[in-house]
Design a protein around this nucleic acid. Structure first.
Lengths: 139, 139, 139, 139
DNA sequence: TTTT
DNA sequence: TTTT
């Protein structure tokens, strides 16, 4: 019913862009390492390695811009997907379906500006209502 | 950049449906009482009264279904909106622009089913990709 | 670094209370079914079955009060835990470590009041500062 | 009942550390500019200026380390606080009470390491259970 | 100004 | 493996 997750972490490797066989829809998948908020008994900080999936335009932007080690904020929904393995066994994949991915540091060799960028899965949150919201109507 | 809020609370009164003067876009505004997670020094549980705004289809669904006292989960974005008051002073309104509103209890006099309903600001998160996601492709 | 998840769903079965062998710390584990925000191509609403873990006092409260079918809101952190299976293979479990569990409907046979209850993993968010926050100091 | 907000934005000025008159408890307050996820009709990206409050140890860490322009992720709870103004009018302040503040960029003149740091309002989420969680018990 |  |  409600399913919302927000993560900040670093890519463990470069994302790869794929296309679904049936419809040619762009998908990308990558994993981010998210540090735990405490240290273990050996005093080490561990991380959770969380799988992210992005679709369509967001997939293209992510695969074009992200590389191993980049810091990102991801907003999305937790999903458990199942598929049948080659061994005939039912397998389960837990992943975060991203709605938004924000780039929090800058590419090493990029045009050296300093502001993070924000990319949405779609433009749905654009209210197209700024004329309304901005015209002083206190509704 | 990232701005995400999730609330559960009860409507302090019935919502009212309005339409923006310029474009006739449906808007509704209501306030929910969200209990604080602790009691004050008098042992009382206080609440925060948080203003919610919903637009378009979501506005219509909310105003048609919600009434004072109903329990809802709201997902959205925190916004500070300014407008010029009648007294010539700049005023600020803090409110949550809802993306999703979920009805967590049932209307008192409704057809007595028991499952909460979920309504989105738009259908944008519908991937329209179930054919893909469901066909066993482990991508 | 940042890892925050909020879920609303229904228990798939009664939780069971256990105690860690080493220290006797209470743990409970249960799964909630979280409806997806869209229907699949057959027009069916699917759900994600998400594993929740609660520790200590929260574990006790959950196991004492929750039963199959109950509606809850869970706040926590997504964790991927590994352990070595009996077959010598490394296994991975993805689960949400709950900080807060809120009961959103009432037990069927309970003392028939209507307000949801809220339980925290700990009292850490209690600022113990109400004397301060409430005394009109605008800081 | 449930009240959770996650924000990423930049400080609009240096935070200032204060102490409550009654108990000498450290408090800091600052504002972050959070870019909206869309542009207005003039093609400009606007921001919401959101007030943050941190208490005690977190207040000290924030005021000691943060300066105008720094990028932070804030997790907390939305609160509407009231106090009586000098003009005898009841005033309302909307602010986010921070549980966690994460520093997402590095201080300009700092020891040039590259990893963001994470600070909690308290250590309550530290399960102190790593011995348990890590010992291979599949509970 | 407020809900249960 | 699953809830309403």
């Amino acid at each position: 019913m409600l399913n919302r997750i927000v993560l900040i972490g670093r890519l463990t490797r470069d994302p790869e862009l794929r296309f679904t066989p049936a419809n040619g829809v762009p998908v990308t998948q990558f994993t981010i390492a998210v540090d735990r908020p405490f240290v273990n008994q050996k005093g080490e900080r561990e991380a959770d390695f969380i799988r992210i999936v992005a679709w369509r335009k967001l997939a293209e932007i992510c695969s074009a811009n992200l590389t191993k080690g980049r810091l990102v904020a991801v907003e999305g929904r937790l999903q458990i997907r199942s598929y049948d393995g080659k061994d005939g066994q039912r397998k389960y994949v837990t992943e975060v379906v991203a709605d938004t991915v924000q780039f929090l540091d800058k590419a090493k060799s990029g045009p050296n500006d300093d502001s993070p960028d924000n990319f949405d899965a779609d433009f749905s949150f654009d209210p197209g209502l700024d004329d309304i919201e901005g015209d002083g109507v206190p509704f």
